[in-house]
Structures are given as structure tokens and as C-alpha cells.
Write a protein that binds this DNA or RNA. Sequence first.
DNA 1: GACGTGGCGACTGTCGACAGTGCTCCCCCG
DNA 2: CGGGGGAGCACTGTCGACAGTCGCCACGTC
Lengths: 219, 219
Amino acid sequence: MSVESLSALDRSTLRERSLEALRTAILSGRYRPGDHLGEVELAGSLGVSRGTVREALRHLQQEGLVTAGNRGMLRVNSLTPAEVHELFRVRAALEGLAVREVIASPRRASAAETLRAAVERLSDEDEPAARMEADLAFHLLLCRMSGNSMLVEAWQRLEGRMRVAILNGAAWQVPMMARDRHVPIVEAIERGDVEAAVRVVDEHMSAAADHFAEASEPA
Amino acid sequence: MSVESLSALDRSTLRERSLEALRTAILSGRYRPGDHLGEVELAGSLGVSRGTVREALRHLQQEGLVTAGNRGMLRVNSLTPAEVHELFRVRAALEGLAVREVIASPRRASAAETLRAAVERLSDEDEPAARMEADLAFHLLLCRMSGNSMLVEAWQRLEGRMRVAILNGAAWQVPMMARDRHVPIVEAIERGDVEAAVRVVDEHMSAAADHFAEASEPA
DNA sequence: GACGTGGCGACTGTCGACAGTGCTCCCCCG
DNA sequence: CGGGGGAGCACTGTCGACAGTCGCCACGTC
């Protein structure tokens, strides 16, 4: 159980690089849910001191990828099916606000255009990880287009948990993130139809919740 | 500019105590928005090492009470009026979900009862700080009663920012947190009237946003 | 054989020190 | 008198080490 060493090429801090390395290590499945993340071991693997990985771990804890167990020991987090449902309901509320604000915005036309372009980049043919990234990027963009910075922040706080949920139920075969699922959202925004937009988002989230909750059931 | 030393009576970690001390120091106004928070100075004031305050500061950063400036230097955060409005709109979305879930819950009756009891504890006569605490406690309880742990989490993430907003526009004289403002929410829940409940929450948040944004305008 | 007990290893909490970096301010030179 | 350079300072980034604590395992005893 280890993670490759850090390259010293860029100019970011070691903490940031450690954070990124750990995040990708967890999200890539190198560490499984429940695995214990020892500071000394990680420090050795990453080639940095304990204090540095410590800060990175604390950040991951805030992101929800890691949770504290007995005596401050950290382990990779996982989500129960119930939590997955809860998570997506919160997401629906947040993104519902997002579409409402996008539609109410004076920049609605250009926002819709940007989103239309983004939805075109959603491909059904890329590999799973890329699809997930594209999907999350689209929804993040949707929040951003609302111009509500607090909304963006709240959404990003949920992003870590979503990645956990998606990782747990790694059922990529279902076209949950297909372009077809997102086009109606953009269309509703283009029409300025708040009702339809919110409803479509709700349905999208509900379906995703069912899917991922079921996929993570056997845990 | 200093903060009193930590008492060594309880059994929590120094980091937790430092975190709490810093939080109350900022929220009490001992440090003003924009003030620089130096690690060495705080470490000296609190009587702990730099690494310890460092972790506490990172936590506060995640909470939104402090923000990173040039070269990683941290300073007390503040909110623009626009951000205050954004913040309360997100809160409205979250608490709207909360009331919807409370009403849809099979435990609606007992939840309403608990909330009714909590709203009775909201007094117009206590001192400002106590009023704020009681208000936030009520809204947190509302989220908790929904049984949605992710919602509670998201709400708590916003709590720090809200305290900043309230601190900025320290206009306690207005009965923004009066009992009258909260009773309609509980009543709508008791009646099971989703429409009314959501609308009341929206109005409550909107009024609060106007109030606090205006109060923090001159900044 | 079961149970209490003492040593041992592993892990986190906390600390003090060193290193690098940008800023400021003063001094010297034109 | 104005501008450039360099020393000094005030930070944060990073590290290695010590201390306290919990769980485990082997050993001895009843």
C-alpha cells in the first residue's frame, strides 16, 4: 500500500502536491474505503515530513474523503446508501437554486450558450474517469454560471463526497452521465422555463441517487 | 492584539482548544476583518507551538472565517453585501429542503414538537450574542430534524460564513431573530403545508439578507 | 485451559529549529 | 536631492524528534 513519490518540477508547495497525490490515490481506488491512513507511512511514501502529510490529511478530512476513527486515526471514508440519497437531495436543492439564478440572471443567454458548449463535450465514449470529470465539470459550471460564489463553494464542498459515492458504486456501464441527461437542463434554461429546469434537475439527481445508492449497497 | 492563554483543565487536544479560542476571538471581534493572523504571534498568545495553531488556522480557513492572502498569510475574512445575499439564498435553498424533508418525514409530529419547544426558547430579551446563538441553534435543529446528515453538514459549513456576516453587520437592534419570525415556520410544518413553509423560509432569509447586507455596506 | 498482567510496538499529539522568501528601510552613490 | 542596492526583518514552509497513549501479544498463574 503506497503512493508514488512527488515530482519536484512545479512550484507549488509540498503540501499542495501531497494533497493532490493523496486525493488521486484515494479516488483512484489505491486505498479502499476503511483503509487506515498512517501519517508515517504516507510521509515515507511521499517523501515529505509528517507535518506536511498531516495538513494534507486534515484537508481531505474537511473534504469528506477521509474520516477520523479511534484516537484521531484517519481512514478512507465511505457512504451508506442512505447517505448517498441524502447527498443527492442536497445537490438537487443546490443545483435547483443554480438553474433558478441562471435563468433570472441578465446574462442568461450567454450562460446558456456556455452550458450548451459544455454539454456538447460530454461524450459517451470516453473512459469512465474522463466521463466522471466531464460530468462534474458540467455541473460545477452550472453553479458557476449562477454567479453565486457561496453556491459554488457549497457545491464544491459536496464534490468530495460525490466522488466517494461515485467511487463506491463504480458502475460506469450505466449511461448516468450521458449527454442526453443534461441536454434537457440546458434547453429549459434556454427557454427560461424555471419549473421545467428545476424538475429536470430533480429527476436527474434522483435517478443518479438511486443508481449510486444501489451500486454501493453490498458494502 | 492578543488572546488569553488556554486553560489546561479539560481533556481535549490543544488543537481543539486553540481552534475554539481563535474562533471566539474572531467572532467576538477581538480581531477585525482584514487583520493579519500571524502564526508566531498566536502561538505565543495561546502558549502552544506554531504547528498547533497552524492546524487550527487551516480549520478556520475551511470554515471561511479566515482567508489566505499574499504568500499564504491569513487574515480575518469579511463578506461583501453581494456575498451576504448569495449566502442567504443558499441558506434558503438548504433550509427549504430541510422543511420539505421534515414535513415528508414520518416523524413529522415529534419533529414539529421539538421545533415548537425550540422556538419558545427564542427570547427577544437576551443579550445579542445569546440571541444569535439561539437563532442559529434553531435553524440547525431544523436541519437536523430533516434527518439528512449531508444537509446538516452543508449547513454547518455555511455557519461560519453566516457568523461573519452577522458580525460584520452587527445590527442587533433589529428584531431579525425574533420569535415571531420563526413561529410561522413551525406552524407551517405542523400543518404539513409545504408551500407555505418553503415560502416563509424564503421570506425569512430574504429579509435577513437585506438586513445584514445593508448593515455591512459601509465596509 | 482461561484469565490477568506486563512489555512492546505503532500511532498520533506537540514542539522547537532551520530554510527560503518577499518587504522594508536605511545607507551610499550619482 | 533622488535612486539603487543591500542588510535586516517578519513571515510561512518544512523537517526531525520527543512524549503520551492505546492495542496487541506473550508469558505466567490459578
